[in-house]
Design a protein around this nucleic acid. Structure first.
Lengths: 143, 143
DNA sequence: TCTCGTGCTACTGTGTTGGTTACAGAAAAG
DNA sequence: CTTTTCTGTAACCAACACAGTAGCACGAGA
């Protein structure tokens, strides 16, 4: 799987935002965050747009604009972040049409769907135990 | 994430193999399996090659050759199948080099790595509860 | 009014995947 | 022993998603 790094970058951005808000007392621009992630401001704005629609951050345009967290770091659970940036989940069924003449081909998808749903639930349950505040605390402790 | 469907197809193939072995008493060729999955025999052989190296199936070349399961369906746990076809896991860190001037940039990766490892463990623990025999039974029950 | 940052669009380059063709090698059938 | 039929690879193509980039309209503050 050419696993996308959107989730990792999203958490990085949120963490950077929380850190800058705490240490500088102000929001951060997409250029600031792009420097931290070592990428392009547009990439940051694209991802932050998704996180904004999901209610995690707010962007203000105009001079001295920038981004700020829309809720407390302790309220942001990583499973919600994953759901926002990877709405289709991490396990996918194959889209090939079923072969009507084959029992397995006809019956496998609902079965796999159930198994996958359970697995994704377990993944999200694990991520739910970590909040952005936890991540930030660990990052600061390692400093 | 353009989530690959390798895992789903792999389970489908193993299930088809188990089903055909049971119902026909013989193995199946890549052409048989390709019909079930509605894809190309080479795609099937590629995936079955991975599963063969992982010890789940055996392929015999030559006339009246084909594939057979290398172990009992009840012994094949889906987490092991996932590990075989997606060795890098489903959650990936971003590869951008860290910005040395930024606390978050320098510290985030080990923290995220730990969180991701826990989440993947939970995912695998869930998949471990299902064996190929379970999948086969459910598929046959739905028939 | 001027500056600066978001939000959005369009385009490019790159990497992965699935699909396809082709072929060498092996094993059974005759 | 020859023919058939299968696996195991390699090479190539098209489709797709993604990161990266440039450009511009809009809005808010200085």
């Amino acid at each position: 799987m050419p696993t996308s790094s959107r989730f990792a970058v999203a958490v990085h951005l949120l963490c950077g935002l929380a850190f800058l808000e705490k240490s500088l007392g102000r929001g951060a621009t997409s250029a600031d965050l792009a420097q931290s992630v070592n990428t392009n401001p547009v990439v940051v704005r694209r991802l932050l747009g998704i996180l904004s629609r999901a209610g995690f951050v707010e962007g203000r345009g105009g001079r001295s604009g920038g981004y700020g967290l829309a809720c407390a770091p302790a309220k942001i659970r990583l499973d919600a972040v994953l759901a926002a940036v990877e709405p289709d989940g991490v396990l996918a069924l194959h889209e090939n049409p079923a072969n009507r003449a084959c029992t397995v081909s006809c019956g496998i998808k609902p079965v796999l769907g159930g198994v996958f749903a359970d697995a994704e639930r377990a993944l999200h349950a694990s991520l739910k135990r970590t909040t952005l505040a936890d991540v930030l605390r660990q990052v600061e402790a390692a400093d």
